[in-house]
Design a protein around this nucleic acid. Sequence first.
DNA 1: CTAAATGTTCATTATGTTCTGAAAATACCT
DNA 2: AGGTATTTTCAGAACATAATGAACATTTAG
Lengths: 185, 185
Amino acid sequence: MELTDKMQAFVMHCGEMGSRWGFNRTIGQMYALLLISEEPLSANELSQTLHISRGNVSMGIKELNSWQLIATRHKPGDRKEYYQPAGSIWQMANRVFEQRRKREIDPTLSLLRDNLLEEPRDQQERYAQQRLLEIHDLLEMITEWASELQRLSPEKLSTLMKLGAGVSKILDFRDKLSPKDRTES
Amino acid sequence: MELTDKMQAFVMHCGEMGSRWGFNRTIGQMYALLLISEEPLSANELSQTLHISRGNVSMGIKELNSWQLIATRHKPGDRKEYYQPAGSIWQMANRVFEQRRKREIDPTLSLLRDNLLEEPRDQQERYAQQRLLEIHDLLEMITEWASELQRLSPEKLSTLMKLGAGVSKILDFRDKLSPKDRTES
DNA sequence: CTAAATGTTCATTATGTTCTGAAAATACCT
DNA sequence: AGGTATTTTCAGAACATAATGAACATTTAG
């Protein structure tokens, strides 16, 4: 498959950003290429277009599958597998958020929880636990909030985001109207 | 400085997570240690407690400074520098978000913008640009929203988060009250 | 069943990242 | 100025991660 300069540039950029986004260079490139291709691509096409080994493509496919970022397609009379991005851009963003949460936050949250179950033995530990508690509460609040937002429909989420900091005005408004009916804090 | 088992465990965990969070092992350990220490620590103390070289500590300090995550203190009659975490947990979380946005999203957003300025030359490019546009709009919406939220006070943000998916009910409520005054979508 | 086509695995090689430690720079004191 | 404590730098060593490609496995057509 032949790429125009602009497409090349995008694919290479995604390669460079790949590791920052939690996967590696080739996986970034592969995903970028699938995204901008109108037709699903076979493993061979990926290998040739990106100049990476066949084996590497196979591993990349495996990884992208584990992130649930691609879907496999078949063409009649052709037993190769063809790959394409799975779902809408929104869904992809969701999946990436979720995966990263699992890798970057959940393990820490679980360690913190375990730690906080035990009694501090001295002043030093008492202070440390206080800090850990703050971190724990913050992380927990953020992850809970994130997963609730993920459950909203894209439309609602979109409205909410476009509203931006305006939400805060709505909160004030609500507090003025019915101060006693406020969210438990 | 001597660490209890539990503190050790936390520090080591942060080391392991370090690279997932955008810095490296020793920087993760250093920051964790500073967080749970009641007293600010000197470079030598960090080096000895964590068993890492003096030079490595120096580079780590530099990096943590660039993330604005630590502050430098001095003790009277002592010309060593002592380090401690800068600001509250909330502020740290903010800084980390911001830094990561700069590294992980801004470059891509800028590439996408440049790309979208040019006219597509053929059908292939037309399709590709369509995808890029979707990504661009999503990333832009998310970053704008994030930066607006960051400007809210921790209290308001906290209220908002605890409210969780409940926001969506408020949106419905508002739409029912004044459908014509709705956010431009 | 065999042969051709496709997909996967994994030991080895290549590349990239982090860490060390000695040397250089800086800051402070007398 | 000279001397000492402290920090910074950076080349190279150690370590970690990613990529290759040949061997192996699987599938399907004939």
